[in-house]
Design a protein around this nucleic acid. Structure first.
Length: 469
RNA sequence: GCCGCGGUCGCCUAGCCUGGUCAGGGCGCCGGCCUGCUAAGCCGGUGGGGGAGACCCCGCGCGGGUUCAAAUCCCGCCCGCGGCGCCA
């Protein structure tokens, strides 16, 4: 018997109850698995009948070619026609079943890793803290809620003045952003940024690709749009609905992250085991509808429709993906340690995982203006979920066995979010923002770029502005 | 955008005109024999699915159509190459 190569299909056929437990962990309806099991069973049965019928038809059809006697020929053709009528009926049923089966199959989420906390968003578990957060006196209680509650003793500095939130910093203190005008001409969650903030954006991206390429990751500019068949293979249904922009009148979708085109780099390809791991670092703009976000983070540039991101992506051997997952989150740790931004690593709870991932780490930076840790990085192990949908096979040289590669992705740096973290963490009482030392080498070569500090201004360098506050 | 040519089982390629032998061959890869070891040589394997299995079905860029029968004929789409046009 041929081994079922996709882990989820194999699991449902062999042990549907086990798979249902994973659905429950994800707070999903376990009936999905039952439905698939039944449809799959019937699909297999019909296929047997269909093959039988087709075989008989093929036998007759082949014999027609060898028959010289015209009378005999007519008889055989009539017989083939009769068989064909029955075949058509059965084929119609099979096609209906096959469509239903594929439809459910595309909805099946990955399993949940053993060491993922079970529950909803509130059950996500911080597992590590780094750095020395600046905590405003009024946020101390909230800070302890986010640290000591989980059994971690995190040293922090108390500050007496209240840091200005990133949105107000950008727009009203530094005056280097304009979301009002952007809102008018493009819509909410768009922005104009100017001068030093743009330099900061670019410096962050350079810093991230410098760090990643020095580790041997291959630098990639990917397509910023993908076809439907590719996009739907890379993301789950929810993401598609809530995040993906479509190009009017074309079969093209804007990427929400470089993860999508990077995963697609090996669309329908075979990868030999001795080529793995393949480590990529992509740089691209990201476009997101943020349809499910409601009113959250409406101000500033924390949650926007468009930003730049440097993304890590790895194709790996199945037996190595857990190890590589640790590697990519560690790369992110290094980047944020370099920036001197205090963070915590969170093991995301089962109910909050995307359908693709068996396990996800978020890196959240302490935001002194908001008094909260906020997500900057997300690192997922998708095992063979994406690879199956993209048809990316793994060929093991020993015995030429075929299964699926594993895929992993993680943010390296998302520019706008990281800027908000810098604006809050490097802010002084007088409103001056210090530039993290590690970024300075990427700025010093440019005459017009800021070097050490970004200073508050009286009025913006460009764009309409009315004195309000 | 227009015209012409092309897309074959990992890679290269035959078959297409003139529909019907298992889609043939080369390379690579895997396994075996041989060998002190390697190479050469020889034998077998090398797309997907179903079936407990003997086997069977599907697969020639994708999707339709004609036919008892399609890699082969017809239509649409995608991609590549060459030429023309247009624009950086």
């Amino acid at each position: 018997m041929i081994e079922l190569a996709w882990s989820i299909l194999e699991l449902i056929r062999k042990n549907p109850e086990e798979y249902k437990r994973h659905l429950v962990k994800r707070q999903m309806d376990a009936a999905l698995a039952d439905r698939f099991y039944q449809v799959d069973l019937r699909w297999r049965k019909i296929q047997v009948e269909l093959n039988e019928l087709r075989h008989r038809h093929n036998v007759i059809s082949r014999s027609i070619g060898k028959t010289r006697d015209p009378e005999e020929r007519e008889k055989l053709i009539a017989e083939a026609r009769a068989l064909l009528a029955r075949l058509k009926e059965l084929e119609a049923e099979f096609e209906r079943l096959d469509a239903e089966r594929r439809d459910i199959m595309m909805q099946l989420p990955n399993i949940v890793a053993e060491d993922v906390p079970v529950g909803g968003e509130e059950d996500s578990l911080p597992i590590e803290f780094w750095g020395r957060p600046k905590v405003w006196r009024g946020h101390i209680e909230a800070f302890l809620e986010q640290t000591e509650k989980y059994g971690f003793k995190v040293d922090y500095d108390v500050i007496d003045w209240r840091p200005v939130g990133h949105a107000d910093m950008l727009e009203h203190v530094l005056k280097l952003g304009n979301t009002l005008k952007a809102g008018e001409v493009a819509g909410s969650r768009f922005y104009y940024t100017f001068n030093d903030i743009v330099w900061l954006d670019i410096a962050l991206l350079l810093y991230a690709i410098d760090h990643m390429t020095s580790k041997g990751y291959v630098l990639v500019t990917p397509p910023y749009m993908l076809r439907h068949k590719v996009m739907s293979a890379v993301v789950d249904l929810e993401t598609f609905k809530d995040a993906i922009y479509k190009i009017e009148g074309e079969d093209l979708y804007l990427i929400a992250t470089a993860e999508h085109p990077l995963a697609a780099l090996y669309f329908k390809e075979e990868i030999y085991d001795d080529e793995l791991p393949i480590k990529l670092v992509g740089i691209s703009p990201c476009f997101r509808k943020e349809a499910g976000a409601g009113n959250r983070d409406l101000k500033g540039i924390f949650r926007v429709h468009q930003f730049h991101k440097v993304e890590q992506f790895v194709f790996s051997l199945p037996e190595e993906s857990a190890k590589i997952h640790e590697e990519i989150i560690t790369n992110a740790r290094e980047l944020f340690q370099g920036l001197g931004l205090p963070y915590r690593i969170v093991n995301i709870a089962s109910g909050d995982l995307g359908a693709c991932a068996i396990k996800k780490y978020d890196l959240e930076v302490w935001m002194p203006g908001q008094g909260r840790y906020r997500e900057m990085v997300s690192a997922s192990n998708c095992t063979d979920w994406q690879a199956f949908r993209l048809g990316i096979r793994l060929v093991r040289r020993k015995g030429m066995v075929r299964d699926y590669v594993h895929t992993l992705n993680s943010t390296a740096i998302a520019s706008t979010r990281t800027i908000t973290a810098i604006l809050e963490n490097y802010q002084r009482e007088d409103g001056v923002v210090e530039i993290p030392k590690v970024l300075r080498r990427y700025l010093e070569i440019f005459k017009g770029a800021p070097k050490d500090y970004i200073y508050p201004r009286e009025k913006p360098p460009a764009g309409p502005w009315r004195k309000t506050s």
